[in-house]
Design a protein around this nucleic acid. Structure first.
Lengths: 337, 337
DNA sequence: CGACCTGGTGTTATCGCTAACATCACCGGC
DNA sequence: GCCGGTGATGTTAGCGATAACACCAGGTCG
């Protein structure tokens, strides 16, 4: 009767290498005081047994896990999804596992519950993707002492925060259009309760102010192509509209379509700029000039900020913004004569 | 000098309730042999101390974690992203945390590495979202003994697998078009190395066979709207094309646009059906008739199959397919006279 | 009415690791 | 040539839970 023998433990490695288990532990944790020869023997034994340290045992004695909890909305929007994916990659490379707690709606109760689930797991730290004010409000409920970083959250709160510099991206996009010769730039905005959308409105307005251009009314939409299309139908009817900055690429797609349907050629008659640089943006007709946020950088900074809190308990400068990049394609041209 | 006292442990609860720590353990694990009165005392103590069991300690002694590892491609495609999100929710409700290992490309090496990372974490089981043959191949490297379920993988392999019944969805979509009176149905297909795409081609062909309709050549594309648009440009030029089944909604979007550009009205001149029911599909112009996979059901089945393996070691019937649902909107009509 | 079960509880060993201390050989300096 | 320092290693004691067994009271049964 062969019982499947249990996974090898540190003592098994120690026995094979002819040392004590403590020496194995020292090799594993790169302690300096181990003779080179001994280290090699131990490493050979580890490889031979396909030994892997038991994280539970380590966590038990150190009191720390190698787990990071992320709270994110259960959505497939490009921005948040990319962010999450980038963060998982960054954390993975740093040797941390990521446990994702999805939330249907970003309200206090749901977020608090997700945070509790993570605390139950004794995560080392928590990241909350909190792009709306209701989500940011919910963070007030998180007990102090838990390392916490907010991504895409409210820039006006003192909590540790990493965010794309929405205003700067919008500023550059708008400036790009103004420099092409347009007298002013219209804006199709995302939902007002999203910080991303608010920041982009702000950057757009600043650019117009800087250039002393007239500030047209904001055209409000949500993030969808459908709402961009509706906004576009309106704008297409107004001959004075020659340049439009859209709060994301899907809105821009809707605008492109509306323009094309009314026979206004992009970029000959109207120039359009988006935000996000979704993978399809280069295949729109025409290929879309847009602003690309560096999600990988956001992820790296977030992780850095979190690990700083985990080890030091505190952070020196708890806010980071990541400058996005304008990607110039073919949807921008000088205005018609 | 106040040192922040450590989290309460089981013994603290036991002391407060006036019982042994073992009794606390029994209460926590719902053992039957505990007097009601004792149970209440213990529960009160747990609440008072805000005690939460230490998972590391439990994992150490039981040898099992409450963690499930998922390997998924680092993509933002609607299908895989939805699946992942649904699975995280299902697992969360069953008390499992989900650790996601993202992979850039679905090749043997990357998948093997991701699986190894999960094994290091001693996950209870692993789910691999393996929609292409290269991904399915990589599973050969996974050592036996690790509970493993494949989602969206190769239906022709014997590994435990849960998948949407692509062929059936495609069959119904095609039948829907034939019943509307179309003589035959054209198909714009996803990439050939995706099982999803292959299954949908098969279902489409079966439906045509069943109705003894002519089988036109498959129009090959990838999953993008851009490629759908190119396919659509071709189809729009052919007057005999009155019905098109697209392998996903984005392709359908491209086709819709191409048709509209060439003045062929949908659904009056041409009927179009998609697959996936992306959130925007109802806002396409016209609102798109499509096939909705039940991602939540896939997630539930996957979890069930995995937990069955975890507890029993084996599974009886290791393959499950989930029937999708046709969602009828406004992009289908009888063919023009 | 003593043997035996059984429900409720406590005691002890154990999981696999790290931290802290113990040990021991070897070194240089006065 | 004895002393303290230092580098390499071993020994021991937990971390916080579960499992296995021990124990004890009270009821059942022959």
């Amino acid at each position: 009767m062969e019982k499947t023998s249990r996974d090898p433990a540190m003592t098994d490695v120690a026995r094979l290498a002819g040392v004590s288990h403590q020496t194995v532990s020292r090799v594993l944790n790169n302690h300096p005081n181990v003779r080179e020869q001994t280290r090699l023997r131990v490493q050979a034994a580890i490889k031979e047994l396909d030994y892997r340290p038991n994280r539970a045992a380590r966590a038990l004695v150190t009191g720390k896990t190698q787990l990071i909890g992320v709270v994110a909305q259960n959505s497939t929007l490009y921005g948040p999804a990319s962010l999450l994916s980038a963060f998982e990659e960054a954390a993975g490379q740093a040797g941390f596992a990521v446990s994702v707690g999805r939330v249907k709606v970003l309200d206090r109760g749901s977020i608090a519950a997700a945070v509790e689930r993570h605390r139950d797991q004794r995560v080392a730290g928590i990241v909350v993707i909190a792009p709306t004010s209701s989500a940011a409000d919910a963070l007030a409920d998180v007990p102090a002492g838990v390392p916490l970083v907010t991504v895409d959250g409210d820039p006006d709160r003192p909590t540790p925060l990493v965010t794309v510099d929405q205003a700067r991206g919008a500023f550059e996009a708008t400036m790009h259009l103004l420099k092409a010769g347009h007298e002013t730039v219209w804006h199709v905005s995302g939902p007002a309760d999203w910080f991303d959308a608010a920041g982009r409105v702000e950057g757009w307005r600043q650019a117009l102010d800087t250039a002393s251009a007239e500030v047209p009314p904001v055209v409000a939409a949500d993030w969808s192509a459908a709402s961009g299309y509706r906004a576009g139908q309106m704008l297409a009817r107004m001959p004075e509209v020659t340049a439009v900055f859209c709060s994301n690429d899907h809105l821009a797609l809707g605008v492109l379509r509306a323009m094309s349907e009314r026979g206004r050629s992009v970029p000959r008659d109207v120039s359009v700029v988006g935000f996000d640089d979704v993978p399809e943006a280069a295949y729109f007709i025409p290929p879309l000039t847009t602003v690309r946020p560096d999600f990988a950088a956001v992820a790296r900074e977030t992780l850095g900020l979190l690990l700083e809190q985990v080890s030091d308990g505190e952070t020196t400068r708890p806010q980071r913004t990541i400058a996005p990049m304008l990607v110039s394609r073919e949807s921008v041209a000088p205005p018609p004569k």
